[in-house]
Write a protein that binds this DNA or RNA. Sequence first.
DNA 1: TCAAAAGTGTTATCCTTACACCCATGT
DNA 2: ACATGGGTGTAAGGATAACACTTTTGA
Lengths: 311, 311
Amino acid sequence: MTKGHTDSISQSVSVELIAVLVAVTNGQPKVITVSSGDALPAGPLEESHKSLQAGLRAWVADQTGRRPGFVEQLYTFADRDRGHSEKYTRQISISYLGLTGEDGPLLASTSWRGWYGYLPWEDRRDTVPALLKDIVEPGVQRWVIATKDASARQARRERAAIAFGLDGRNWNEDLVLQRYELLFEAGLLPEAGPAGRRSLRLGSPMEADHRRILATGIARLRAKIKYNPVVFELMPPIFTLQQLQQCVEAIAGANLHTPNFRRLIEQQQLVEATGAMVADTGGRPARAYRFRAEVKEERAAVGARLPIARA
Amino acid sequence: MTKGHTDSISQSVSVELIAVLVAVTNGQPKVITVSSGDALPAGPLEESHKSLQAGLRAWVADQTGRRPGFVEQLYTFADRDRGHSEKYTRQISISYLGLTGEDGPLLASTSWRGWYGYLPWEDRRDTVPALLKDIVEPGVQRWVIATKDASARQARRERAAIAFGLDGRNWNEDLVLQRYELLFEAGLLPEAGPAGRRSLRLGSPMEADHRRILATGIARLRAKIKYNPVVFELMPPIFTLQQLQQCVEAIAGANLHTPNFRRLIEQQQLVEATGAMVADTGGRPARAYRFRAEVKEERAAVGARLPIARA
DNA sequence: TCAAAAGTGTTATCCTTACACCCATGT
DNA sequence: ACATGGGTGTAAGGATAACACTTTTGA
């Protein structure tokens, strides 16, 4: 309980760092994968690493050749059944989100993959994906009515409605993890069942719980982008507002209202015009912008507010 | 990189679970502590634990006698210099936030402590604490001008202004961790210096980085309470709006505007009147409320929004 | 009667959302 | 000319913040 106690027990434990490394290039959000897209890059925590974040940065640079500007811890897992060997060693997995640009080479064993290949129901940009109506909603419906108890069924119905925007609710793009978990529980993802009956209809699966970790990363990024200017890390130094909008749309998986998006950005004083114009847009030339240096420092979330009383 | 690799390395690692267990009773937010308030309760991850969260719940129930309704992971640390023994074992610390009520007994070795005893600058309810003007601001100012480089100094000034609401900015109650880290960096907390010159003027210190973990927990709770109805977990089943407001004020460390708070709660349909009245309020009797059962299910964050285009 | 807390009304302001429209370029 | 994307104006509606005020109890 106090410090002396904890040191006494030292199980056979290995610590693994897993990275969700994100880039967005011309409208496609991507992650770095290994094993032909079957897994996220992961590396052991080594004794030389001063801290977890330092360890992660070290082997990400080593293994992928990228140096993400923004890195944030996602979640730590340690389920007993995560080990692969017969002998019982506990595996701790600490996952991180990293943002980077797509430029520069990767090692041959790693590759960029579009993240909506793994979670196709999350991309509602041009159209609402047909598989939502065709596969997800019927499957979720079966899962709802599969419970005998009426109140449990009601709870499931409610949960499904919130997650997938049913019963007249709006789709909430932040609920990526809730949707993944519900689909998992409903047995609609191959990870949930025996390897035999893998169906690729609901996106490509990944090793172990890597697809869940990806969902966690996307959820975090979608939530974060609204109150913290992390988009920076994903954009080139000079860009047009259209490019910025497409980047945000790629992350959010939804189309934005162009005039209002523009005003939102201006009002927040996130960017400043360079004075230059970009001509190859297909229409009228666009102003070129850069992020304001001050904003890069700030990182000040404004976010939600309580009705605070004045002094 | 792929799964085979990570298993090969298995350092001498011990895993510790640390809990920030919060209750609010008549206007005072509290945490469970051990060692006479010098540390947060912590326990080793044992082989019998099926998952981290299960492990945490198990020993929290054991060691403190409380069963928190809401539990959420905070952060995982693994700095090399965390071990206390001469032999080099890596210590992984996984911290959790748990919400509970204060009723029921605790074990003798544990006790509730008001959290503003550790972070007194965070409580701005009746008055802005004098130590902000007297100790914090001068100390921070010294830290700002202690840098030779003009642009680094400007960055420090900006950071301090955001964290502490200087230069005409508003105090942002969510930035608990940023404030703690700045004070730490500025050498104003005893944790940062040698044990000899401990000054209690800026709150009671804690073992190792427990005070930082407490700050992380408070920050998370303050942010969360605005878009997720977790206050439930801290309130008795029946309560008045005034009690609810005092609970939120205790957490936020700020006074709220009563009429507007009331409307906010009503508009969100968080509560429903029981019909009963509570008379011992010191003034006009208040209506008794309970939380709406539906809301307990929901947990649907609305939060910030992007200017999404209609289909 | 007065203090203290409960509770209601109302207004000014700001932000969000939506719609309408003009501008500048390439084909 | 017209399609395509860039860019501006503005008005409706809702949420927030601030102020003023009434109601109901106990001392």
